[in-house]
Write a protein that binds this DNA or RNA. Structure first.
Length: 214
DNA sequence: GAATAGATTGTCT
DNA sequence: GACAATCTATTCT
């Protein structure tokens, strides 16, 4: 039996917010970075699905930004995807241990990306907990760029994938208040390190470091 | 709470 | 061969 008032007999479940499309990423990196705070990151793997609300990001704007891997127009097999079309994943390994997820932004030939630094778990908590070896209710589950990649199963195989596809993508979400600060771990970058290109939700307990805004 | 050392490997000089 | 957009455990206070 179908219930009246719902087309095709669909249950009255909450409608899924729309997926973030290419046009969202094809804008200047600082704009995209600010807008990414609050969006929902979804990862689908053979192990299951995980979801989390993005609460902290950083913008990297090559070629002039000395903190960016694409500084000076450096184009190597690793940085190559940043020079391509917006809305693709730039994934890299740091310290031989920790994977990092970025969204490529801007336009072709413009090597920019937004690093996802922290998320607040929404769904798939037990899978995240198993992958991390950390209790599901602890902030260390996803409060860092390497931690969230481990929790979401993000690694080398995600390099260059389309973020408007069905494996790894963002969902639209209500706007939230966004605070800014200098970026973390880029002190070597001189004056560029002082730029307030880190964007975060000051009310989230999953932000990776001191929530001091500037 | 802060400071420190050690892990571990792809990437580039 | 040095280094890196980090994380964890340990050792202080």
């Amino acid at each position: 039996m179908q219930r009246a008032g719902h087309r095709n007999g669909a249950r009255p479940t909450r409608a899924e917010p729309p997926k973030v499309g290419r046009e969202f990423y094809a804008r200047p990196v600082l704009q995209v970075a600010r807008a990414m705070v609050g969006k929902v990151l979804v990862s689908r793997t053979s192990e299951g699905e995980t979801r989390g609300r993005i609460v902290e990001v950083e913008a990297y704007r090559g070629p002039e930004d000395r903190a960016a891997h694409s500084y000076g127009g450096r184009r190597t097999p690793r940085t190559d995807v940043m020079f391509g079309a917006a809305g693709h994943a730039y994934v890299f390994l740091l310290y031989g241990l920790h994977w990092h997820l970025n969204a490529v932004t801007g336009f072709e030939g413009q090597p920019e990306a937004v690093l996802v630094r922290a998320v607040e778990p929404i769904a798939g908590l037990s899978l995240m907990s198993a992958r991390r070896g950390v209790a599901a209710d602890r902030p260390e589950l996803t409060n860092g760029p390497g931690k969230l990649c481990a929790a979401f199963g993000i690694a080398a195989r995600h390099y260059g994938i389309d973020l408007t596809g069905s494996e790894l993508f963002l969902l639209e979400a209500p706007k939230v208040r966004v605070a800014r600060s200098p970026r973390i771990g880029v002190d070597y970058a001189g004056a560029w390190a002082a730029r307030p290109w880190r964007f975060f939700d000051p009310r989230s307990r999953y932000v990776s470091r001191a929530r001091r805004a500037i």
